[in-house]
Amino acid sequence: MIPASFDYVAPSSVEEALQALAQGGEEAKVLGGGQSLLPVLRMRLAAPTTVVDLRKLTELRGVRDEGDAIVIGSMTTHHDVTRDPLVAEHAELVVKTIRTVADPQIRHRGTFGGSLVHADPAGDLLAPAVALGAEMVIAGSSGRRTVPASEFFLDFFTTAVAPDEILVEVRIPKHTGWGSHYEKFNRVAQAWSIVAVAAAVRSEGGSIAEARVVLTNMGSTPIRATGVEQALVGQPASDEVIRAAAQHAAEGTSPMTDGNADGDYREHLARVLTGRAVAAAAGLAVQGG
């Protein structure tokens, strides 16, 4: 299939890009790496009048150290994020998650910011962003604003980024020394997550000092499993504690029923996978497949 016709601009600065979006109006669409957008255009599920390609905005690529946080440019490819030593050291959960995203070719082209703004509830990067308390830096005509990840994802395929705005970078507070794991469950390797769980755990002297557990595809946006987190904090990192805590995983979720799984099965998976994700993050051996 071939996309419908559109006008194309490839601005050389964020300001130019914002101008192009303003001129394009509601029917303009930002093109990052294109790995989510292109299939949609090819199937003609979307037909923007203008496509604003950010490929020339080199300032949006790369990772930098900002003291207590690392900052990932929104146009940094998945591949480059996984290879970055800063991310590996301070946000290991992101690296582990990206390794499960799609396939190598798509990771070569797809961008960190693009996945977040696409906001597919089955998309894998949303949960770690929430788990690590990321802050989204959004540029608009009136300047830049910062939105915490917990308030960024609004609904299916909907974020706080307005049609005339661009996500420029993502600040991730350093989680140096945290254990982490992304437990993804799907039917074939390249399929989207049926359910997945992002877990990050900070241990102190054999007990869990802090825990972040966020669920993928258990609702229209990533869902933080606060019941699980509360049940973990201050407890020893044992199988029993984790298993008991994981029973809270499906609380407050609203999973959908689709061709791969019914809602009740997703709730069950959320509990099982949460147990496995937290155990792995805490460095315990994990049973099961």
């Binding site: 194309y8 490839a10 093109l31 294109g34 790995q35 292109l38 299939p39 090819r42 390609d53 490929r55 591949h79 190598p104 070719q105 798509i106 070569h108 082209r109």
Partner: peptide
């Protein structure tokens, strides 16, 4: 449709020629 673009494998059906 996999080809190499600037030395990395990509799916050429998911990239615009202009890119």
């Amino acid at each position: 449709c996999t080809v190499h673009l600037d030395g990395r494998s990509v799916k050429s059906c998911s990239i615009l020629a202009v890119q």
